[in-house]
Design a protein around this nucleic acid. Structure first.
Lengths: 127, 127
DNA sequence: GTGTTTGCAAACAATTTGCAGAATT
DNA sequence: AATTCTGCAAATTGTTTGCAAACAC
């Protein structure tokens, strides 16, 4: 199962690198199509899944039923607006303390933690 | 939009109350069918959604693509096994501190927080 | 009697997959 | 030449919805 180079995959990574808004597969698809008009949604999905599996990008399941993707794989917190659905990074430095505390009373292996904050984003809370 | 009583809805709530494993809609369906063999999956979904909306149960989107449901609506932490997919409660007391810290540097309204720990459960880490 | 809920089936949305041909090594 | 990757379309999965009949108040 050796990886081969592919222009489409590169393009998907490049596109994701320019975005800080954690786009969905469909948004990536529409973005990459400006460079590769013939690329298919299936290819986008396949590559996003692949890249997430090998750890080059992160797949965010924020709970809105659609997967979001993040070029930034460093552990950090996300905010999800329950009105407009936007996903934003939080400034809050990521703390492993909670993970360690969780490990204390737990039989089994805790590898990591996923935290999403939800509420209304700046724009949506102005009404 | 007044609520009327329904045996099916009662049965769904009762079933959920007996379970600590955060079952999916399908599991609820199969469980309730032992008492109401004619209940339909649609009815189960409709009621689970309704109950979650009025806050009587909690809908958990743990990130495996399937919704899980919890009779316990008090804020608490969940663990999700990335091997067998089981969902368990953590003993760890729930802390609002992180939410408050998140509010500090954020423009907008943070209402709550959803944290999932992932790794391998006791059974799955034995191999 | 009015309005809500049900069972059924069809619709839907997001994602995955099978396949033959194209691209990469 | 061998194998991976692509585009396309069909399949799959989880969930929602439209409708006429059944039920609750």
């Amino acid at each position: 199962m050796n990886l081969k180079h592919s222009r489409q995959r590169d393009s998907i990574k490049e596109f994701l690198a320019t975005r800080k808004d954690h786009p969905t597969a469909d948004v990536v698809y529409m973005g990459v199509r400006r460079i590769y008009p013939n690329i298919s949604l299936g290819t986008v999905y396949r590559n996003l899944t692949l890249l997430a599996e090998i750890g080059e990008i992160a797949r965010l399941r924020v709970g809105d039923g659609v997967d979001h993707f993040d070029y930034d794989i460093s552990p950090h917190y996300h905010f999800v607006c329950s009105r407009c659905g936007c996903v934003k990074d939080l400034e809050l430095p990521f703390s492993e303390q909670l993970t360690e505390k969780a490990r204390e009373g737990f039989t089994g292996e805790i590898e990591g933690q996923m935290t999403y904050f939800y509420g209304r984003c700046a724009e949506c809370s102005r009404e």
